[in-house]
């Protein structure tokens, strides 16, 4: 079965800890994600997500603390606004809604983390390999 490659931006205090907990509890989920740890979901510049798509990832998962749980008090609230706009914009230009997904996973939700990865993987599998926005780096002229 085709395994998509999904980049996952996880906030250090909740979702990354939730991912750890899934492992500690030996909850199995598809080996599709590549994790980038960030201090807070509020750290995530929407450009990181665009860059991920351009770099050839089949999907992007972004996960942070539940509203109210943010280690930095309000970071996820600002993140939520950014993500809402980015999501609307991507879908507007025709990127499949399942390509870029968002979740709140707490440090205690190992099970949920696994389910989220499961679901995102399933969605992206259904969509097939990414086609849009991928840059052909063979033809690269920058740098």
């Amino acid at each position: 079965m085709w395994q998509p490659k999904i980049i996952a931006f996880l906030c250090n205090w909740c979702s990354y800890a939730g991912a750890d907990l899934a492992g500690v509890s030996r909850i199995q989920y598809p080996p599709t994600i590549r994790v980038v740890r960030v201090p807070c979901s509020g750290r995530i510049n929407p450009i990181f997500i665009l860059k991920s798509l351009q770099s050839g990832y089949d999907g992007v998962l972004v996960s942070g603390c539940h509203p109210g749980d943010c280690h930095y008090l309000t970071g996820n609230y600002y993140a939520r606004r950014k993500f809402a706009l980015l999501k609307a914009l991507l879908e507007f230009i025709g990127i499949e809604p399942g390509r870029v997904q968002f979740s709140w996973v707490s440090a205690g939700e190992g099970e949920k983390f696994a389910q989220v990865v499961e679901r995102v993987t399933e969605d992206i599998r259904r969509l097939g390999p990414a086609r849009y926005l991928i840059k052909d780096h063979g033809a690269e002229v920058e740098d």
């Binding site: 929407p46 665009l50 860059k51 950014k82 914009l89 991507l90 991928i134 840059k135 920058e142």
Partner: peptide, 24 residues
């Protein structure tokens, strides 16, 4: 370097997307 500066399609689209986000 956030994105390429040439007229490569993905770079161009992303430039316009980011501009839309920046002016939102």
């Amino acid at each position: 370097q956030w994105f390429g500066k040439g007229v490569e399609l993905t770079d161009t689209i992303i430039f316009h997307l980011v501009r839309a986000l920046h002016t939102a």
